[in-house]
Simulated scan of single mutants.
Amino acid sequence: MNLRKMAPVGLRVQGRRAGVWWGERTASRRPLPDFLVVGGQRCGTTSLFRALMAHPQVLRPQLHKGVNYFDLHYDRGEAWYRGHFPVRGTDPRIRVFDASGYYMFHPLAPERIVRDLPDVRVIAMVRDPVERAWSAYKHELARGFEWERSFARALELEDARLEGEVELMRADPGYQSFNHRHHAYRRRGEYARLLAPFVEGLGRDRVLVVESESFFATPQAEYQRIVEFLDLDPFLPESFERYNARPGSGLDPGAAEWLRAHYTPHDEALGTLLGHQPFWRQAAHD
């Protein structure tokens, strides 16, 4: 039973505000994260987040799954960010982390992360970009953030919807673009391009790319790889659950074919980064 969720909404909001207020004033005793889960959106990051939480050496932010500091709230400052994390104890084996499905796609987040956390480790989850785009569209439609009833039409509108938004975000770091956050179905799947700033800024050895399909097919092996990357003690959760999945049926064949062709060079570039063809490209040739 989650007593926090049973509390009235107003009381929970007040409690979070009080927690942030106190955390900010004790920021000097609180760590910055040792590692980040940077996305991608609709790639299984919530499932990974829950699996990481199960590890006894891993601590999450106290008030939210993710703080969204490097993408949406950077103007609030480092003390505000630190205030979301628990006070670090004396055990040097403990790792603190933050997660946001928007960090990988936000145009300013990678450079902020590289500048402020030069020793951080980054985990990125990727998924068949065609299926990811379709899942994201259904997700935004269900939330009321998308009003086009045709996925093909939403893809046609993407460039117009996003035109000039990155320039506005760079000109005003406090500007939050609704269209960039909710209507970038095609662009969020161009993984190699999005991962490049992390690899270039932090080094290839500090960036771990996890293919969603592999994580759900062989979760124990992938989890062990993640644990080794984070230099944690060997551990396996009792079970691996899948969260926030949406049924994959109903994708228009024409839209799928168009996206598959678009992603061909992006998938090839990702394959170079991975050292092998992405899982979904291997499956297509089996």
Rank of each mutant, 00 (worst) to 15 (best):
P129A: 10
S47F: 06
D159S: 02
P219L: 05
Q14L: 15
A171E: 03
T46Y: 06
H55K: 13
E111D: 13
H55L: 04
L117G: 04
R153W: 14
T90G: 08
Y74S: 09
I226L: 10
L195F: 09
R143Y: 10
E163I: 01
P237Y: 05
R12Q: 15
R188S: 06
R246E: 00
A124I: 09
L236H: 02
D159I: 02
A255F: 14
H262T: 11
S239Q: 12
A160Q: 00
A133K: 01
A192S: 10
E158W: 03
A142S: 14
R17T: 11
E222A: 12
A192D: 06
R29E: 14
L273G: 08
L251Q: 01
P219W: 04
R193S: 14
E140M: 07
K138M: 00
W147S: 15
L141T: 00
V126Q: 03
V67S: 11
A152C: 07
P86W: 14
R153G: 10
R60L: 07
K65D: 15
D119L: 15
Y81I: 09
E268D: 13
L251I: 11
E167S: 06
L208S: 03
G203F: 10
P253D: 04
K65Q: 14
E146L: 12
I94N: 02
I94M: 11
R95S: 07
H276K: 15
G83R: 04
R281D: 13
H285F: 12
L195K: 08
P173H: 03
E78S: 10
V227F: 02
Y191F: 14
M125A: 02
R143K: 13
F145T: 04
N179C: 09
W258F: 05
G164T: 00
R16L: 15
G40W: 12
R206D: 09
L251M: 07
F229S: 01
Q277W: 08
G203C: 12
L208A: 04
G275N: 08
M104Y: 10
R161Y: 06
V227T: 02
